[in-house]
Design a protein around this nucleic acid. Structure first.
Length: 890
RNA sequence: GGGCGCGUAGCUCAGUGGGAGAGCACUACGUUGACAUCGUAGGGGUCGCUGGUUCAAUCCCAGCCGCGCCCA
């Protein structure tokens, strides 16, 4: 006997462990099936499960479980990435707090990296453990890590190949420099934040002239590195100055005034100082006019100790330098004006410090070249986005892609396979030995080499994930069988990180796209629509929800809310609601169990005879088809909605109620058929619901088999998905059961409205019933009585005096209320009903009276309207009769 | 400034060229041994505004207003 309530905490961990141990999630288990492959977007090894992960992985799991049941050979490839900066940060912090009080530099590279690995062994499995709690059916036996030997080999192969193809090169360009971590970071790790700042107007005297030009800047300290002043070529205020020079205050350097479109006459003074070594725009302007690149900040963002810098500023932090420079400019009369100014300032998303554009030597990938085939692939539809319009974002980014800086000044990551000779000549090879051999050949003798200290951007290895995890560069069978993979499921904020880079690398090295579909899901926000963030304190922890409501409830909530193209505003109440849904299902199963509804051997739905059973079997097929259709097109919310409605609204609310009299009845044949049908439909529900709520369904699947004459071939996780059989639809049964439901509903409504005590049993009289109605009452009279709390059902030509009347599907039904009836209230009710019917009728008639409508509307629409008019007329007529009789009896 | 998207019941959101929906919240009443994590019933919406296309617009188109996100 099932417990009275379902306790997820008790069941979920046990079931998951069982699935994993039994190898249910293993790829290749069903080697004959068509492969279905998803690579997980690798979470950060330092991470823990947040709501975004919960959504992302729930959707992947739904697809995987669905396809696994449909007979595909599913591989959900799990793993994590090594998250260069984040991981290094964690371990550095640990070092600082451990009492050892050593920095990583004191520790040395080798020892520091060893410590990181040690940390990873102990703490790196957090998120994968949490994914298990969510129920994710990953093939853990194939778990990968971007720093694994195999994946590292892939990284080296890719780097060397691209280098030899000229698609990776070393260059001196401006990068986003993080002065806290002392490394370059990517554009995508930079967050622009609106900051209140100032706009300083500074007068630069023109050489050999009384004139001067006023420039406006938000960063006065960089004037130490100015190498020009730009004005717009059409700006008449300055035309006469172009070609002349100014003398830079404080340093006395002489720099040219140039004409360049970059300068905006509307902004500031229309004249702008150019610091090519410290600003991305200025860098471009500088290149156009051949201006000097003068670096004035060091890696810590302190003013460099150089001859051309006045001694007073050397070594100052950039913000102190600003204060001092502004003060000195003012003292010397060069400061014209200070205005408040709101600017977008770049911050490192991990360090939180202001990012400094810095001129450094870095390794770059020629992303523009790699992007071309990646753009074409989406244009041709080799890969498509769902929802489709995300391709615009992809195209936009890909078509404006910049060289990708892939080197990082970190110790944790794939060290760049480049070695330098004494003269700085570089040898890029997969191994030290190969590099040495190349050097020997180059120099004509053994020559000592030093390896490049830097490591690669974490995303460089993530970009290879769809093929490196399958074994590349080895030509493994798995790789051949499973590349390209099927679908990448990810959030839109990650299109640039994963999708774009996986596309570029996949196409270049595999000559084929990495996945045919990219499903982009929404962001999970809090219930007010705010992005969840630690600083706002509005984070909802998915693990907390799992503890409170169960993983099934959380998963179902996320799926039900995952409508395409809309963010999810998550309210805890919703999760609670779906927990209630799980309980509802549990109790329905409990009812079946108590009534001995067990699977019957050889049960053939098509052979079922009883109308109610035929009806529910048809509905079960309908919902099966709806779920399949929705999941095949990634409409998770529709699939979830369809099952929910069927389970609660159809199976529990009506079917189980309708069969109670049958189960308690005398007809053993009907009883047996009904039990088998109920069990069959419950079974179907468990299957349909399993991708969404794997735990409770598996538990019930096993429980329901106890005592049944049918033995389960497999656990539910591997059970075959049913093929929907449209042939089971039975319109006659639908009409009949629909009539019963309608009658019961109307009587209940009337009772409530007329304030009939809930316990009172009423006498029902059906007025002028035709043969159909009489037959239906003959079949279903008992259950109508039961569901509508009737004492008796009788037939008559006219409604008895003092009864209230209602019209259901063309039949007038009269309820004898005796003394209970409140005639005035009843009259009001009837008048209201008639009013409604008339309103309805008026709309329909207006439409039908319009000649343009009858001339142009499709026939089926016209016919439908005519039918609706008939029905409305009939209802109005009968209601009017009822009212007339009521008035007569007053 | 460029791009994407959103304004539907008190709240959170589905939805559709032809009868406005769900969940939650709210109100009333609770019976019938699956379920009070429940049942039955009820109230509640000029589908942001203005035009246009159409026989017909909440849905398609244009403009406007309000809001959000991404990029510069």
């Amino acid at each position: 006997m099932l417990d009275k309530t379902y306790d997820p905490a008790d069941i979920e961990p046990r079931l998951y462990e069982g699935w994993e141990k039994s190898g249910a999630f293993k790829a290749g288990r069903n080697a004959g099936g068509e492969p279905f492959t998803i690579v997980i977007p690798p979470p950060n090894v330092t991470g823990s499960l947040h709501m975004g992960h919960a959504l992302n992985n729930t959707l992947q799991d739904i697809l995987c479980r669905f396809e696994r049941m449909r007979g595909r050979d599913v591989l959900w490839q799990p793993g994590t990435d090594h998250a260069g900066i984040a991981t290094q940060m964690v371990v550095e912090r640990q070092l600082a707090q451990s009492g050892e009080n050593v920095s990583r530099r004191e520790l040395g590279r080798e020892e520091f990296v060893r410590r990181i690995w040690a940390w990873k062994e102990v703490s790196g499995g957090t998120i994968t453990r949490q994914l298990r709690r969510l129920g994710a059916s990953c093939d853990w036996s194939r778990e990968r890590f971007t720093m694994d030997d195999g994946l590292s080999a892939a990284v080296r192969r890719v780097f060397v190949t691209l280098y030899k193809e000229g698609l990776i090169y070393k260059d001196k360009r401006l990068v986003n420099w993080d002065p806290h971590f002392l490394t370059a970071i990517s554009d995508l790790e930079v967050e622009s934040r609106e900051t209140k700042g100032k706009m300083w107007h500074i007068r630069y005297p023109v050489e050999d002239s009384e004139e001067s030009i006023v420039v406006a800047t938000t960063r006065p300290e960089t004037m130490l590195g100015d190498s020009g002043v730009a004005v717009h070529p059409d700006d008449e205020r300055y035309t006469n100055l172009v070609g002349k020079s100014v003398i830079l205050p404080l340093t006395g350097r002489r720099i040219p005034i140039v004409a360049d479109n970059y300068s905006d006459p509307e902004k500031g003074t229309g004249a702008v100082k150019i610091t090519p070594a410290h600003d991305f725009n200025d860098f471009e302007v500088g290149k156009r006019h051949d201006l000097e690149q003068i670096a004035v900040l060091d890696v810590h963002a302190h003013i460099v100790d150089a001859d051309f810098i006045p001694a007073a500023y050397r070594g100052l932090d950039r913000f102190e330098a600003r204060k001092k420079i502004v003060g000195d400019l003012e003292a010397q009369g060069f400061l014209v004006e200070i205005k408040d100014h709101v600017l977008m300032q770049p911050y490192g998303d991990r360090s939180g410090v202001v990012i400094e554009p810095m001129l450094t030597d870095q390794w770059y990938v020629d992303a523009a070249t790699l992007a071309k085939p990646a753009i074409a692939a989406v244009e041709q539809g080799d890969t498509s986005f769902v929802p489709k319009n995300w391709d615009k974002t992809y195209f936009e980014w890909m078509r404006n892609i910049q060289p990708w800086c892939v080197s990082r000044q970190l110790w944790w990551g794939h060290q760049i396979p480049a070695w330098y000779g004494p003269d700085g000549h570089v040898f890029v090879e997969e191994t030290a030995e190969a590099a040495q051999a190349a050097a020997t050949a180059h120099y004509g003798q053994e020559t000592a080499l030093t390896r490049d200290e830097d490591v690669l951007d974490t995303w460089f290895s993530s970009a290879l994930w769809p093929f490196s995890t399958l074994g590349w560069p080895e030509e493994t069978d798995v790789l051949k069988r499973r590349y390209k993979t099927d679908v990448l499921v990810t959030g839109f904020d990650i299109i640039f990180f994963w999708v774009a880079r996986m596309m570029m690398m996949g196409l270049h090295f595999m000559k084929e796209v990495p996945f045919h579909t990219v499903y982009i899901h929404a962001l999970v926000r809090d219930e007010k629509g705010q992005k969840m963030s630690k600083s706002k304190g509005n984070v909802i922890d998915p693990l907390d929800l799992i503890d409170r409501f169960g993983a099934d409830a959380l998963r179902f909530t996320l799926a039900a809310m995952a409508a395409q193209g809309r963010d999810i505003k998550l309210a805890t109440q919703r999760v609670e609601g779906y927990r209630n849904f799980a309980t509802k299902l549990w109790n329905a199963a409990r009812f079946c169990e108590m009534n001995e509804c067990r699977l019957a051997p050889g049960f053939a739905p098509a052979a079922a005879g009883h109308t109610i059973n035929r009806w529910v079997l048809g509905e079960a097929e309908r919902v099966t088809a709806a779920v399949v259709d929705a999941l095949e097109t990634y409409r998770f919310n529709e699939a979830a909605g369809a099952v929910y409605q069927f389970v609660w609204g159809t199976f529990c609310d009506w079917y189980l109620e309708l069969i109670k009299p049958l189960l308690n009845g005398e007809d053993e044949a009907v009883k047996a058929e009904t039990r088998a049908t109920a069990a069959h439909v419950l079974d179907r529900i468990l299957v349909l619901l399993h991708p969404f709520m794997p735990f409770i369904t598996e538990e019930l699947w096993r429980k329901m088999a106890e005592g049944a004459a049918v033995t389960r071939e497999t656990d539910l996780v591997l059970a075959p998905w049913p093929v929907a059989d449209a042939g089971l639809a039975d319109p006659a049964a639908d009409a009949e059961v629909g009539w019963v439901i309608g009658l019961v509903t109307e009587i209940r409504a009337l009772r409530a409205e007329a304030n009939v005590p809930a316990g009172a049993r009423l006498d029902l009289v059906l007025v002028a019933a035709d043969a159909d109605v009489r037959a239906r009452v003959g079949t279903h009279g008992d259950l109508i009585s039961r569901l509508a709390r009737l004492e008796s059902i009788a037939f008559a030509d006219a409604a008895p005096k003092g009864s209230v009347q209602l019209v259901v599907a063309g039949t007038t039904a009269a309820l004898a209320l005796g003394d209970v009836i409140d005639l005035a209230a009843e009259r009001k009710r009837l008048e209201k009903e008639i009013g409604k019917a008339e309103q309805d009728l008026a709309k329909i008639e207006a439409k039908l009276a319009n000649p343009a409508f009858t001339a142009k509307a499709p026939p089926e629409v016209i016919e439908e309207q005519q039918e609706r008019r008939e029905a409305a007329l009939q209802t109005r007529g009968k209601l009017s009769d009822a009212l007339a009789r009521l008035i007569a009896s007053l």
